[in-house]
């Protein structure tokens, strides 16, 4: 290798590292580091007036590490129920979003190329106004129907807010499908339903999977919608975490709830990714 090529490769490497270093540092500082703080916090005692007690046990017997937060969680079925309810609401929201988004995404994907961008823009247009304002607007819609503070109101609100997150990945997937495949299926004897079920649907599983992740996880952590549109029985994990931090000022307890949620979600995602890879779909 000539000197010239060697120095060029070195130069390219320098450019590559200088491009990825800032975002890498940013994520390290503002994502990984806080997450680690949270992991440690979930094993600590709360401070007297909020915050955290010292990390190492002091002479007056406060501070140090403990499993107390986790023991508390598993000592009562209440927390488990809220978790279960949250997963239920998130699952239901995801399924409703899927059923509503699929026809919309199909329609956009099959529209003439020129109008596709406009239709996608229309789908994300609600993001142009503030999220809270839109949720309050739903209050005005629900009130005359006496639907406020109900589970139904929460679900409607959740679906409304998260629908675009299902439409977009689905559309991106469906748009890439080769229409000749549907011709081929029809040519080989498949009717309209079989063409969908045996060709379009299995090929769209990656899109469904990304959409589901993008809806399911934010719904779990959402506290504003249950708080504004729901009643006391509609509290979700997000509300508990928020209440632990802002209401009870019990940071360790909030961190522990957060940890349990993160671990459960990661397990779910890993499980479904495994299923997805196990042969339901191959690109």
């Amino acid at each position: 290798m000539s000197n010239h090529t060697a120095s060029r490769i070195r130069g390219e490497r320098l450019v590559k590292y200088s491009i990825i270093t800032p975002p890498f540092l940013f994520l390290l500082m503002f994502f990984l580091f806080p997450a680690l703080i949270m992991v440690v916090a979930s094993f600590r005692f709360p401070g007297e007036f909020g915050g955290l007690a010292p990390l190492f046990r002091t002479e007056d017997g406060t501070g140090g590490l403990t499993l107390e937060n986790y023991r508390l969680f598993f000592s009562s079925s209440n927390y488990a129920w809220i978790f279960l309810r949250s997963f239920g609401v998130a699952a239901l929201t995801t399924v409703i979003c899927l059923f509503m988004a699929y026809p919309v995404a199909t329609l956009i994907a099959r529209s003439p190329k020129k109008s596709r961008d406009l239709l996608v823009l229309l789908c994300v247009l609600p993001f142009a106004s503030n999220f809270l304002v839109r949720v309050y607007a739903w209050m005005i819609i629900f009130q005359p129907f006496n639907m406020m503070h109900s589970r139904l109101a929460v679900i409607v609100g959740m679906v409304y807010v998260h629908l675009p997150f299902m439409i977009l990945p689905l559309y991106t997937n469906l748009e890439k499908h080769d229409p000749t495949l549907l011709d081929a299926a029809q040519d080989l004897g498949a009717n309209a339903w079989q063409r969908f079920w045996r060709v379009t649907f299995p090929m769209s599983l990656p899109g469904i999977f990304s959409g589901a992740v993008l809806v399911f996880i934010p719904v779990l952590g959402m506290f504003a919608i249950p708080e504004i549109l729901g009643g006391k029985d509609d509290w979700l994990v997000g509300n508990m975490i928020k209440e632990a931090f802002l209401g009870a000022r019990d940071w360790p307890f909030g961190s522990m709830l957060s940890m349990i949620m993160t671990i459960t979600v990661l397990m779910l995602v890993a499980l479904s990714a495994w299923f997805a890879r196990k042969g339901v779909y191959r690109a």
């Binding site: 011709d183 004897g189 090929m203």
Partner: peptide, 20 residues
């Protein structure tokens, strides 16, 4: 007779094999 009912099959230029 719609395409799916015709006893006629096609080999497409792009083959149109089902990727999944």
């Amino acid at each position: 007779t719609p395409p799916e009912k015709r006893p006629i099959h096609t080999v497409f230029q792009s083959y149109a094999l089902f990727p999944h």
